[in-house]
């Protein structure tokens, strides 16, 4: 914590020139915007110049080192013996990471938007076939975004209703419709692919039928003649379906998940120590 506080004091003393030294709370938003851009250009520029000086052969090592250092706080905090209160010297630091990464990841959300805009702008500028769809993308993008900001900045009946209308009429309706089309496809796929070609396929089909029927009211209705209590009650479809899910299925899932979890841990270790190999790791940076 001491190191972190010292680093913070050092950085604040020298770097955010505009936002730290020149602007005070209450200054107009455009002054802050200018200050943030100014500081960003200065700090970012200096960092960029330093990074450019890193020789190509050391770049991979630098990334591997930072990847390792990134994982140290959480891993060490977990393995380091705790005091009576359950904390150790890293606990306070670890709890503050989330605030910073929250903002960092939010900036990363823009990556997807940027890629989409680049793709659609390219098609639109070159007037490729279907360019009117790319235009529709931009119109929908800016309309929805501006409706949201208008409602947020000037909240009144018109802005609120227009925003709700666009959200409900386009985002919500089209999103749910897109996903619901899978319903049609699954019927067609189940009909064509579900053939009892082997013993295993038959077993799979039997489990699917019982679960499909047992989870909906029609299954309970079909076996409603069987008494609700006693040994025979186990044969009621809703009970049989629940038993399948809660016993053999659960045991099989646990077996699978043990394997998956061990694999995920091994994968995390390989990522942390930069042992993973692939096209990215083999290239000269």
């Amino acid at each position: 914590m001491y190191i972190l506080a010292t680093l913070k004091t050092f950085l604040l003393k020298w770097f955010p020139i505009f936002t730290h030294g020149m602007l005070k709370p209450g200054a107009p938003w455009y002054a802050w915007l200018g200050g943030i851009i100014g500081d960003f250009l200065i700090i970012g520029g200096i960092l960029f110049l330093i990074l450019r000086m890193v020789p190509a052969r050391y770049r991979k090592s630098l990334i591997a080192l930072l990847t390792f250092l990134g994982g140290v706080p959480y891993a060490l905090e977990f393995f380091w013996p705790a005091s009576k209160g359950g904390d150790n010297f890293l606990s306070l630091f670890v709890r503050q990471i989330g605030d910073g990464t929250n903002v960092l990841y939010s900036f990363a959300l823009g990556l997807g938007i940027f890629s989409l805009m680049r793709f659609h702008a390219n098609n639109l500028i070159r007037k490729r076939p279907g360019w009117h769809n790319n235009l529709a993308f931009f119109v929908a993008f800016f309309t929805m975004m501006l409706a949201g900001f208008a409602n947020s900045v000037h909240h009144n009946a018109v802005n609120s209703n227009v925003f709700d209308m666009l959200f409900g009429g386009i985002v919500s309706a089209l999103g749910s419709t897109m996903f619901s089309t899978i319903g049609f496809f699954i019927v067609s796929a189940a009909y064509r692919a579900f053939r009892i070609r082997s013993g295993e396929a038959t077993l799979m089909l039997a489990a699917a039928f019982v679960v499909m029927l047992g989870q909906v009211p029609v299954g309970a209705w079909m076996t409603s003649g069987i008494p609700e209590n006693g040994v025979w009650a186990n044969l009621r479809l809703e009970n049989l379906s629940y038993w399948i899910l809660n016993q053999p299925n659960m045991a099989a899932q646990r077996g699978m998940y043990f394997g998956i979890e061990i694999g995920a841990l091994a994968m995390a270790l390989r990522t942390w120590l930069s042992l993973e190999r692939g096209s990215f790791f083999e290239k000269e940076l």
Partner: peptide, 21 residues
């Protein structure tokens, strides 16, 4: 295709608005 693009555009615009606000 047109409505598919409208959906992607509107959903992206909405995400930008929510992430900021």
């Amino acid at each position: 295709r047109l409505f598919e693009h409208i959906f992607i555009g509107a959903a992206s615009g909405y995400s930008v608005f929510v992430t900021w606000t």
